[in-house]
Design a protein around this nucleic acid. Structure first.
Lengths: 215, 215
DNA sequence: TTGGTATTTATACAAGTGTATAATTATACT
DNA sequence: AGTATAATTATACACTTGTATAAATACCAA
């Protein structure tokens, strides 16, 4: 009975912070924002609740950090995979579209996570800033890909039109992503990427589907 | 001091229920789901909190009813205005698209209202059923309008393709609606309807913009 | 080995939450 | 006018929430 190791481990602040952030995200995704209480978060990270206040000045601080973490993760997940492995601009654009419309990006947890945060965006200016920046970051990447693909196909497009195309394509992707996550089971496997490719292709005036199955 | 009228008014159940639902909706839209407490709802409806439990078996019941109310309202708002005043099928489709991309449908309150509910959809089967039905109802109307417009233009389209077109157009509208509501000020007046018309037109292969300014 | 210190736990608290129950009171009907 | 009844209020309760503060403890440096 007298045998007992250390009762807890001291970890570097950065590491603990990330663990708490990940706990927060998984909890919001799983049980909704309402389920992400300080006690639940601490429990999932295997610490006691007091620690949260030590690393974050308030719960709102933690939520904000978690939101930022999640959003940049999502964008990376859509943009990154195999960015260099595609030869043509067109196939890079196609990959961007399909990446955003397949798991793990399309996922019920992801959508409800996003929705959970949306409420706080209106109230908290910091949240609003993150939201705005994430949206524009994503859309700008998309716009660049579209511009490249059109240039490659020798289609001349004024930049004023380009903005509208990017907004529209972004909307298709967002809309399909949302519906796929909110209604799992309502779409066949591969249906969303297919529809996404065809729609984006129709909007910008290129056939994206022919370039798909290219690894 | 001895002078005092009736301390409260008895109203028909149906009327009180709706008043409570409207209070709930305005409160969620304004302060988020977290702000919609039984006390706040009752206060906004000028009643005491006990009355909520008299008309609804639980708060969840009220939330569910409010969700149902809101969703059917949104669909009506998009579909209804001037349904008969349009001559061609194409202009009816165009009106459907633009209606959903203008105020009052596009509105920060509306979007955060929708997002607030989304969390509860995953947990509550009744919510899920309402969500599913609302989505399909909206999409079916859209699909019918698309089918009519294509028939009118003498473009033959198999029903298997029609489904994909409706999903895609629905996604564009949803995505634009979401972005317009989540980022008020990021888009010029009339920009969303314009982009919506052009995109839906491109997807189904019809020029919807020429038919617009028709009252 | 011995402090020193930031990390971590332990405990407490005030405010707000949804719910339950009994006491009032308006109103329709006889 | 009187009464039954459903609507409405009033009050209370048990529980959860975020936050605050003090005590304990692991780990680094000397």
């Amino acid at each position: 009975m007298s045998e007992s190791g250390p009762k807890f481990r001291r970890e570097p602040a950065e590491q603990r912070k990330e663990a708490l952030i990940l706990s927060t995200l998984s909890l919001i995704a799983e049980k909704g924002v309402r389920g992400a209480t300080v006690r639940a978060i601490a429990s999932r990270a295997d610490v006691t609740q007091g620690l949260i206040r030590h690393h974050f000045s308030s719960k709102e601080d933690l939520i904000t950090a978690a939101y930022e973490h999640h959003m940049s993760h999502m964008t990376d997940l859509t943009a990154a995979p195999g960015a260099a492995s595609h030869h043509s601009c067109k196939s890079r654009l196609a990959a961007f579209v399909t990446n955003g419309l397949k798991p793990p990006v399309v996922d019920p947890r992801s959508v409800s996570l996003w929705a959970g945060f949306l409420n706080k965006i209106r109230e908290d200016p910091r949240m609003q800033a993150i939201h705005e920046q994430t949206y524009h970051d994503f859309r700008d990447r998309l716009e660049a890909l579209i511009a490249d693909a059109l240039t490659e196909a020798e289609i001349d497009t004024p930049s004023s039109q380009l903005r509208g195309l990017a907004i529209a394509c972004n909307a298709v992707i967002d809309g399909l992503w949302m519906e796929g996550g909110a209604l799992p089971g309502a779409f066949e496997t591969g249906e969303l990427p297919e529809i996404g490719l065809r729609s984006v292709g129709a909007i910008i005036g290129l056939d994206l589907e022919e370039t798909e199955n290219r690894s």
